[in-house]
């Protein structure tokens, strides 16, 4: 085995190494789904129990910003997918460029999310003693906002971790560490990034879009 070989000592072939890395990421994503699953279950139960409070609370969210962020995040998934393809073809510059674009779009998402949180703060929609809600059933509306902040907060945390990993990945790509035989890290991070994207695809309709048509 040569000095520069990227085949780890305990694997027999690049194919085995690649399959292992990919399966490992899928197994990791399975546990992530169960991790978010607890929150989705809580959301389902409480929405079913307090439909009115949840519908009116949902109306407090900014659908425009939510939609904008959804498009931004889908765009970042596109650039991520392109980066994986660049890496598979051994195109170093393309990989770096698309990874940087992915980071930029991810950062835009987080900045917009920050503005949304600030807006909730100004309107006293943070659960707790200062919570004020003009709609019906203000007590249970707090439950919606606890879930809103838990779910989007956990999602944002995954984005922040993802951005950190992307920064490291970009540095590695710039050093030319990835080859057509072994770009498993790019693929793995790509899977992770798409997973975080998909979580948002579920969060957006559940939190922003529901119950609008028969309230206004």
């Amino acid at each position: 085995m040569s000095e520069n070989s990227t085949l780890a000592h305990h694997f027999d072939s690049y194919a085995q190494q690649k399959e292992s890395a990919s399966l490992g990421m899928w197994v990791f994503i399975s546990q992530e789904i169960m991790f978010f699953g607890g929150l989705f279950l809580a959301y389902t139960i409480y929405r079913w129990r307090f439909p009115e409070a949840f519908a009116y609370s949902s109306n407090e969210l900014d659908i425009g910003l939510g939609l904008f962020n959804t498009i931004v995040l889908i765009g970042s998934s596109l650039t991520m997918a392109l980066a994986v393809r660049n890496a598979a073809l051994g195109e170093k510059n393309g990989t770096v460029r698309n990874l940087i674009l992915t980071m930029l779009l991810g950062s835009v998402f987080l900045v917009v999310k920050g503005f949304e949180y600030a807006h909730k703060w100004q309107h006293h929609l943070i659960p707790g003693p200062n919570f004020q809600f003009s709609g019906p059933d203000p007590v249970h509306a707090q439950l919606f906002f606890v879930l809103y902040f838990s779910m989007t907060g956990l999602h944002a945390l995954h984005m922040i971790v993802g951005l950190g990993i992307l920064a490291w990945l970009t540095a590695q790509a710039a050093k030319g560490r990835f080859t057509p035989e072994n770009h498993n890290y790019v693929e793995g991070v790509g899977l992770y990034w798409h997973f975080v994207d998909i979580i948002w695809i579920f969060l957006f309709p559940l939190l922003y879009l529901f119950g609008r048509h028969h309230l206004t």
């Binding site: 197994v27 399975s30 546990q31 992530e32 169960m34 991790f35 978010f36 699953g37 607890g38 929150l39 809580a42 409480y46 129990r49 307090f50 409070a53 659960p127 707790g128 007590v139 249970h140 707090q142 439950l143 606890v146 879930l147 838990s150 956990l154």
Partner: peptide
């Protein structure tokens, strides 16, 4: 893989509830 993350998020929610005095298991808000 399938069980542990569920208790992880549950413990996290208990921790958040203890920290912020409001949370998803809090009967005061339903």
């Amino acid at each position: 893989i399938l069980g542990t993350p569920v208790v992880a998020i549950t413990i996290l929610l208990v921790g958040a509830e203890r920290l912020f005095h409001i949370g998803v298991f809090d009967p005061k808000i339903g």
